[in-house]
């Protein structure tokens, strides 16, 4: 199973295995990674699973969707070019080792 490296706002790092097809958010919340709130469970309704994707994986995670784009604009933490809602990134073998930093406010 591909792995995800989460850097949490509290400074801790968590390496979590994910099923192919499940989202980065799902893998993180089920493992209890601190900082990911993900209140809507991946319905793209809350913008509380905001992460910054590390450079080497920026392209591999794909494009920001239209609705996600609007939600990200108004997310609590600053939006950068690395910003994504982690519920919108399904895991694949190509993303094995992907590193994300959980946004400090959700």
């Amino acid at each position: 199973m591909p792995k995800i490296v989460f850097n949490s706002p509290d400074g801790s790092q968590h390496v979590v295995e994910a099923r192919n097809g499940s989202s980065i958010m799902e893998a993180g919340t089920r493992a209890g990674v601190p900082g990911i709130v993900a209140e809507c469970g991946g319905a793209l309704a809350c913008a509380t699973c905001h992460v910054y994707v590390a450079d080497p994986f920026r392209d591999a995670v794909g494009e920001v969707g239209d609705f996600e784009d609007e939600m990200l604009d108004d997310a609590e933490a600053e939006r950068t070019a690395a910003s994504r809602l982690s519920c919108q990134i399904p895991m694949t073998d190509e993303l094995d080792g992907v590193e994300v930093t959980v946004a400090p406010e959700q």
Partner: peptide
């Protein structure tokens, strides 16, 4: 929440519904 939405229309499966993994509960 997905029960009346993505689970009902078949786009979400059982595994996706889990709130936490067994490992999470054990470690906590």
């Amino acid at each position: 929440p997905p029960l009346s939405k993505a689970f009902l229309d078949g786009t979400t499966d059982h595994d996706t519904l889990a709130l936490r993994t067994p490992d999470f509960f054990r470690e906590a």
